[in-house]
Amino acid sequence: MKYLRQFGLILLFSFLGEALRALIPLPVPASIYGMALLFLALAAGMPLSAVEDTGDFLIEIMPVLFIPAGVGVLGCWGELKAMLLPAVLCVTLVTCLVFGVSGCATQALIRRERLRGGNGK
């Protein structure tokens, strides 16, 4: 019954996400609400073991779930061709920029934090 219970619980959070998606008029996917609710439940003391095994299975197969959508690119080759250059810039240049900005900001903040912590002692 272990997997049945865990899968049921995960579907419950998915459904709660769907309900919030219907209630709140924002372009936020149901899965994000569900994820936030599950995280809050875990933080509030729900044991990891209540969802862990089925959850790890679903995360393991997750990349496979993207294959149909990825293969679907075949059907929109015309649209892709029209935006090829901006898309290439996004993949290369923007990725480097995001890497640098997030990494350098974090490193500077952590160093400051450590410095302050060191002075405190």
């Binding site: 998915s14 996917p29 969802v51 997750m62």
Partner: peptide, 8 residues
């Protein structure tokens, strides 16, 4: 959707 929920 359930798989994404599990990212929590």
């Amino acid at each position: 959707t359930p798989a994404t929920v599990c990212l929590a």
